[in-house]
Amino acid sequence: MGVVIPLEDKNRNTASIKPLVDLTKPDMGRVNQLILEKAGSDVEMIPEVANHLISSGGKRLRPMLTLAAASMFGYEGDGHVKLATSVEFMHTATLLHDDVVDESDLRRGKSTARMIWGNQASVLVGDFLLGQAFKMMVDVGSLDALDVLSTAASIIAEGEVLQLSVAGNMETTEDDYLAVIRAKTAALFSAAAEVGPIIAGASKADRDALRSYGTNLGLAFQLVDDVLDYGGKAQDLGKNVGDDFREGKITLPVVLSYRRGDDNDRAFWRSAIEEGNNDEAALETALALIAKSNALNDTITRAEHYGAIARDALAPLADTPAKAAMLEVIDFCIDRIN
């Protein structure tokens, strides 16, 4: 694929995830050790499959949010390490399952587990990781934290099924699509942020603030991912540019382009998404239609909207290094488009 869509330069200062990484570095060392320990099994294939994805270079943003959110409210203990590890295992399990459902070949620049070990192993190892996550949640002994994370697991599964129900349907509305990503992506961001104040014994208002922050950060994060699939680079994505299109995925740029197109444009999208006519030539046409409709820049605008809501959610809280780092994460997630 030779062409990507140039994105509008909005003259942002490039934000960094480094403050969050530095803030959580000691505890993330403990999380990484626990990940290796809990991914172990006498069944040889389990650690092989799990470590293939765990070691593939993800930023581990979600567990860092759990650690930072706990430190924001002065938590002292080790429960946040177990909850952060649970969050990462939930995320990893979701990726293993997603790659099977989406028939993906590449994840973070490497062959997916399903391409190496097969679909059955990927699903079952994902289930193992979910089981380990729930054991660690129980170990922490917080019913509220367990409730939040277990609810998130259910919502994520609902999101997967909802995505199947809209897959290949070009009549999917923007609201339909937002419901999918609110469940599939934002729910875990939300839970990861909320369990921090829970185990720190913070107030309901504090919990509500971190839940809102996580939800809206997750929405912004996914919308930027949607943009990058049509306007990014493979090395930034950890997958091939245009993979969403090849897999027939409905994402917001596609929804907007379809809605704004003429009869010929909409006929193309129905052929590509609903009938699977999505070869490289079709991808070039898709890129041209998305550019014509200004769908990428408008998707970015929506991501910025949710980023602003996430920022406002933290505004009433006391200024701390954790708060500053979590605010910069918002800009970092959106600045990935630059």
Rank of each mutant, 00 (worst) to 15 (best):
M1R: 11
V3R: 14
L7Q: 01
L7W: 07
A15W: 12
I17Y: 10
P19Q: 03
D22L: 12
L23I: 00
P26Y: 12
M28G: 08
M28D: 11
R30N: 14
K38G: 05
G40Y: 10
V43G: 10
E44A: 15
M45S: 13
P47F: 03
P47R: 03
L53G: 06
G58S: 06
A68T: 05
A70E: 03
A70K: 04
S71K: 12
M72E: 13
M72G: 09
Y75M: 03
D78W: 04
V81D: 01
V81P: 06
T85C: 07
V87Q: 01
E88N: 08
E88R: 02
H91Q: 07
A93K: 03
L95M: 02
D99R: 07
V100P: 02
E103K: 15
L106M: 14
R108A: 11
K110E: 09
M115T: 13
W117A: 10
W117C: 09
A121V: 13
S122E: 01
V123N: 05
G126H: 06
D127Y: 12
F128P: 01
L129T: 04
M136N: 08
M137C: 10
M137Y: 11
S142H: 07
D144L: 12
V148K: 10
V148W: 11
A153Q: 11
S154V: 14
I155Y: 01
L162W: 13
L164V: 03
E171I: 10
T173H: 02
Y177A: 06
Y177H: 10
K184F: 02
K184D: 04
T185Q: 09
A187E: 06
S190E: 15
A192W: 08
A193T: 15
E194T: 15
G196I: 11
G196M: 13
I199E: 06
K204N: 15
R207I: 10
A209E: 03
L217N: 08
L217Q: 09
G218N: 07
L223R: 01
V224K: 07
D229A: 02
G231D: 04
G231C: 07
G232F: 06
Q235K: 14
G242T: 04
F245Q: 08
I250W: 01
P253V: 06
V254Q: 04
V255E: 04
V255N: 02
L256D: 11
Y258M: 08
Y258C: 09
R260K: 13
G261F: 15
A281C: 08
A281E: 15
L283F: 05
A288P: 00
L289S: 00
I290D: 07
K292P: 02
K292N: 11
K292Y: 09
L296Q: 06
D298T: 12
T301S: 15
E304K: 15
P316E: 11
P321V: 02
A322H: 00
K323M: 08
L327C: 10
I330E: 07
I337K: 12
